[in-house]
Amino acid sequence: MSEEADDRKGILPGGEAGLAFAETLAFLATAANGTLHEPKLYGTLRLMQALDRVAGAMEAAGLTDEALLVKAREIGARVTTLGFDQAAWEDFTNDAVQFFVERLHDTHPVSRDT
């Protein structure tokens, strides 16, 4: 390992974005471990919490836009205020799927040479 690399050992680059991604990785690993012993429903919640975190990290990295952020924040807030209404949560996650898939589809159009 070069001396320069050694100096930076353990420090992720990228300021706020680096921190937000590092937090997200720690969160994902923690959630993967914790959900083994938690009620089944928590798994779906943790994924949506992770989504909010990824969007936050993308924002810090300048990789997102207002619409995506608004949606992610809405999801984050919904997790905080959630009661255990599984049917409502299912609808909510379905809407989220639609939003993100449409966005994926629209922002990355397919042509024959893509």
Binding site: L19, E23, A31, G34, Y42, R46
Partner: peptide, 13 residues
């Protein structure tokens, strides 16, 4: 606090 939240999935707020 941020680091703690990262390892506390139960801390939604």
């Amino acid at each position: 606090l941020r680091k703690i939240r990262a390892v506390s999935p139960g801390m939604t707020g």
